[in-house]
Design a protein around this nucleic acid. Sequence first.
DNA 1: TAGGCCATCTGGTCCT
DNA 2: AGGACCAGATGGCCTA
Length: 223
Amino acid sequence: MIEYGELSERLGLLPDFSTDSNNNSDSSEKNSQRGEKYSLRPRSAKKRNLDDDSDEIITIPTKSSKPKTPRPKQKPAPLSKYRRKTANARERSRMKEINQAFETLRKVVPQMTITHQANEKLTKIMTLRLAMKYISTLSSALNQESINEEDLLPSASELDCLLLESDGESLPLDSDFSDHSLTHDFAIDFPDDSLTSVDFSTPLSPDFSHHLRQFDPLLSGFS
DNA sequence: TAGGCCATCTGGTCCT
DNA sequence: AGGACCAGATGGCCTA
């Protein structure tokens, strides 16, 4: 039985965890709080290494058993230790970029407080779904304004419907959302560089288009 | 303790 | 050949 450390060293598969743990510290705030704990994946690495060790030549499962047939398809040589490290670093960097984009998106998408506690961070999937819905809300408001700027503003229930929907499924427009109405002022609730949330306990302002223009510079061109 | 969310590692695939 | 992108696997953290 080959020990984990020995095997990994022999195969040259494992990155330098001590340095990786340092690299991890900048991946995200949350992760930095976790510190060095993300640096090791002993069991998974062991399993993978053992798998690698168990079959050096990959045998393609054949329907017709022709045992003597040589399998030309060999597992490609694992990346060198250096290339594996650099690939991991690139991947971390790529994910960091994605997470930064999520963070930016969180700041511009109105958030709900219905199911979230005050300082609870929106999950990625919730952020995407809210963004989709927010765009939909703005688009519909824009279209309605092109017809009649003042009279065709979305109703509070429509906005509730759009913003409440977070799972990709449409909610019926006649749903009863009387328990929570939208905030009266997006511009106040969402300063440029702070995470804010829609307060459903306050009534919706009738002048929704005005707030939309304040909120989105693209819309301000239509005033 | 189970489940959700997340970061990370890893190998495969595609592209330049 | 090497980088970008992706998805699967894994384990840590947190909350109900």
